Simulated assay, not measured.
Amino acid sequence: MKLEIRELRKKDYKKAIQSAIIGMHFNWYTDSKLAVNLYGKYFWYLEMTRATQVIALYADDEFAGVLLAEMKGEHKKFRSFWGSFYVKAFNMLHNLFTKGGVSVYEEANEEMFAQYTKTNTPDGEIIFLAANPEIKMKGIGSALLREFASRNKGKEIYLYTDNACTYEFYEHRGFHRVGEKDIVLQLGKKQVDLQCLLYSKVLL
């Protein structure tokens, strides 16, 4: 199979969502498949509405992975009334039924970022990176990062992740851990212990 950078096809959004659900272990947070899929869709459209760079990778004609980034001074790539409406509606329902849940995660990220930016002025953020688990190839994530770096040489970027994800992937590729915070998510009757992480790197 040959890996190739292309424009992301709209028909592959579902595959990107499923890649995130599996790679980021959304099933840690709920036993409901419906809730997992609804959250995966929300997460995708939330990040797409922020993205200024969208880098998609294909293996022959199959979706292999995608990287989304929000860079300072760049225009948003995605415009969708439906996507924006879904994000807003989901946020309203989410805040109504999970008060004190995910807000703890967001507060931890804000705290780490505030500390990080006391001494750093980043140029942008990687907001989404996922590889299609159905493509049995190594190097998809690395290829996406290389393409992103080639477009943004010399820029300092950061990203949020946690111990539910393969954070070691970033450490093996020169990212430095610049923040960490242990939290407990209380989602209904389910309690999840997490370590929130912040990574940074100047792209070469």
Results as ranks from 00 to 15, higher is better:
40 G>Y: 09
165 C>L: 02
80 S>R: 05
31 D>W: 07
128 F>Y: 15
74 E>F: 09
139 G>P: 00
150 S>L: 08
161 T>A: 00
51 A>K: 01
143 A>H: 08
139 G>K: 03
120 N>C: 14
34 L>G: 08
111 E>V: 07
114 A>K: 11
149 A>P: 01
122 P>R: 04
79 R>C: 10
177 R>A: 12
177 R>Q: 14
118 K>F: 11
46 L>G: 08
135 I>E: 05
162 D>V: 00
82 W>A: 08
160 Y>N: 05
73 G>C: 10
169 F>Y: 11
113 F>I: 04
27 N>T: 13
148 F>C: 12
5 I>F: 15
133 P>M: 07
39 Y>H: 10
14 K>G: 05
193 D>L: 13
80 S>W: 07
188 G>I: 13
40 G>K: 02
63 F>Y: 08
52 T>V: 12
94 H>F: 10
47 E>C: 08
28 W>N: 12
7 E>F: 04
109 N>R: 07
156 E>D: 12
95 N>M: 15
107 E>N: 00
101 G>Q: 01
41 K>T: 15
114 A>W: 02
136 K>T: 13
4 E>R: 09
153 K>P: 06
20 A>H: 07
32 S>M: 13
88 K>F: 12
79 R>Y: 09
119 T>L: 14
202 V>G: 03
12 D>P: 11
6 R>F: 14
78 F>H: 03
185 L>T: 02
186 Q>E: 14
2 K>A: 15
165 C>R: 00
98 T>M: 11
111 E>T: 12
12 D>R: 01
165 C>H: 05
40 G>D: 11
52 T>E: 14
174 G>K: 09
95 N>C: 13
11 K>F: 03
57 L>R: 10
138 K>V: 03
66 V>S: 01
19 S>R: 06
132 N>K: 00
17 I>H: 02
116 Y>I: 10
178 V>M: 05
136 K>I: 13
169 F>Q: 05
166 T>L: 07
74 E>R: 04
88 K>E: 06
6 R>L: 13
148 F>S: 12
94 H>Q: 10
195 Q>D: 05
17 I>E: 15
41 K>V: 08
183 I>E: 00
133 P>Y: 02
36 V>H: 09
75 H>F: 11
119 T>R: 11
